[in-house]
Design a protein around this nucleic acid. Structure first.
Lengths: 244, 244
DNA sequence: GAGGTTTCTTGAACGCGTTCAAGATTATTG
DNA sequence: CAATAATCTTGAACGCGTTCAAGAAACCTC
């Protein structure tokens, strides 16, 4: 929907906010999340501690900004490939590899991310409303992976597939966070194998003979999603719209 | 292996430690994790702050003790049922329901648990060595669910099934943590449906025709486990053995 | 441009998890 | 029993995330 480029706010406050965010992300990348203190961020950005808190009321909210940022980068990296007409398998493979590549500079930081991400009370757990926008956008990306592929997939499955692939991608990220192999070789291997398997399972599930089982599985997925905030009463909850 | 009962240490130190733990768990249950401070725990237990830290060098370690405790309770609740000869489906269903029932008093607290649990650097993330013992014991429980059931399952799958079911059970817990429905109705519904589905998928996967796909899936599971600490160099790493 | 209003900025202060040097208590040994 | 060692206990102190009352700067409005 929105273009990729960073919107560089021209207002005074917007620039200060951007400055703080850039400083924070750089420090997170270089020294990790825990050991980067709010005081250090403020000092390096040349603002007071209170000022940093004026724009980011909690350290966690800097993570949310990170979510947003890396999603944009991943999207930008994926778009050219998504234009091409490829098999579902090839498209998924590319998207997943690009995701990991995008996150790679922040590997250590991302651990802290998941820490808060899994917390129900946290504003950034991926199932909560606050991160709605980014999540929706992320699911949309997988919708693009599915939609424009020429794979023959029954409608019922096709509808749920983006969400399922998003869940799958969260699992891969969880694995990646724990992966300390050289050049993240194990994660890439896992992606290769799991995408291959997923492709086969999708084919199998698309077989008419599998219809009853498929229906059951899909109603289970419904169960899963039901409680999650699917709808945002706020109609302009685009990725950009949630800036506060 | 070991009996269920709490081992009440007779030494002075052991009793102080137990007192602190009991106080902490009670307060966690009543007021949640975050708002229960180490100072409050110490005060209520009638010891000094530093003393609490002597026995539990971090607040997180209290969570690990909680892990251990609830696993023991879950095991105790499951054992009578596991004696009976039931179908795999029935056994799994019971074990899962009992798990949720065991955790229920700590629902709010458990959120904080997962928060740290997902963190790679944390001592308690379920994939790390420190929680090895409890995890192994937990997987063992699912091994019991599988082994003594009369389901006809090919050997290759049978071997990996306990670990897979453990992963599944972690997923259910993650859902439960986010579940705010009355009496956790949605979680129980999810368990019913997912166990039913799992049972069918296992049957399907056991079909000789499915052998190639099954082999692929299982080699993927291998990939998953590879990096995780499967072996503990410490031979007496029983549930009890890891008390330090 | 004076007066008022919104936006931005500051640093002191609070409560938290955690550390640690010092002392008290208990166990072990000759 | 005295002396030494091991264990346990204490509370002050540190750095952290976060809050907040107070003020400065920018922006209106007439």
């Amino acid at each position: 929907m929105s273009p990729i480029g960073r919107k560089v706010s021209t207002t005074k406050g917007g620039q200060t906010k951007a400055l703080i965010l850039e400083t924070a992300l750089k420090m997170f990348r270089d020294h990790g999340y825990e050991s980067t203190t709010m005081r250090a961020i403020a000092r390096k950005a040349g603002v007071s501690l209170g000022n940093a808190y004026y724009y980011f009321p909690s350290k966690e909210l800097l993570i949310q900004a990170f979510y947003h940022r890396t999603h944009q980068e991943h999207l930008a990296a994926s778009l050219p490939m998504l234009e091409k007409e490829l098999s579902l398998k090839a498209r998924l493979l590319d998207v997943m590899r690009l995701k990991i590549a995008t996150l790679e500079p922040y590997h250590e930081f991302a651990g802290a991310l998941f820490k808060t991400a899994a917390h129900p009370q946290s504003a950034l757990n991926p199932f909560a409303t606050a991160s709605d926008a980014v999540r929706q956008a992320s699911i949309q990306l997988f919708a693009d992976v599915v939609t424009k592929s020429k794979a023959r997939i029954p409608e019922d499955l096709r509808v749920e597939l983006p969400y399922l692939l998003w869940l799958y991608h969260m699992g891969i990220i969880l694995f990646w966070i724990h992966d300390s192999s050289r050049k993240r070789a194990r994660t890439y291997r896992l992606i290769d194998h799991s995408v291959d398997l997923l492709d086969r399972v999708i084919s199998l599930a698309s077989n008419p003979l599998m219809r009853p089982l498929r229906k059951r599985a899909l109603s289970l997925v419904d169960e899963l999603r039901e409680g999650l905030p699917l709808d945002s009463e706020d109609p302009e909850s685009t990725v950009e719209g949630r800036q506060k």
